[in-house]
C-alpha cells in the first residue's frame, strides 16, 4: 500500500479543492471543502480500495493525510 496512491485516492473525493493542494502533510479538516459528507466518502473509499472499515473517530484523530494513511495501514 502506497502513500502516494492513497493521497490520490483521497484527493479524488474532492470537487473544488485542486489536487495540487494534497500532500502527505495536508491538514485535511482545515480545507474549506471539508464536510461530514466528505468524511463519509473517505470512509467509503478506504473500505472499497483497501478493505478497511474506518470509524468516524479514526478520521477525527488524524490530522494529516499521512496520519490517516498510518491508521489505515495499521488496520489492514
Amino acid at each position: 500500500m502506497e502513500l502516494q496512491e492513497f493521497i490520490t485516492n483521497f484527493a479524488n473525493q474532492f470537487e473544488e479543492t485542486d489536487s495540487s493542494v494534497f500532500t502527505k502533510d495536508t491538514v485535511f479538516k482545515n480545507l474549506d471543502e471539508w464536510s461530514s459528507l466528505l468524511a463519509l466518502s473517505i470512509i467509503a473509499m478506504v473500505d472499497e480500495q483497501y478493505g478497511v472499515a474506518l470509524k468516524g473517530d479514526d478520521i477525527r484523530s488524524a490530522n494529516t493525510i499521512e496520519d490517516l494513511f498510518g491508521i489505515v495501514k495499521s488496520k489492514k
Binding site: I43, K55, G56, I59, R60
Partner: peptide, 9 residues
C-alpha cells in the same frame, strides 16, 4: 453503533 458517525457529530 457501527461508528461511521462520531458522538461529536
Amino acid at each position: 453503533s457501527e461508528g461511521k458517525i462520531t458522538q461529536e457529530q
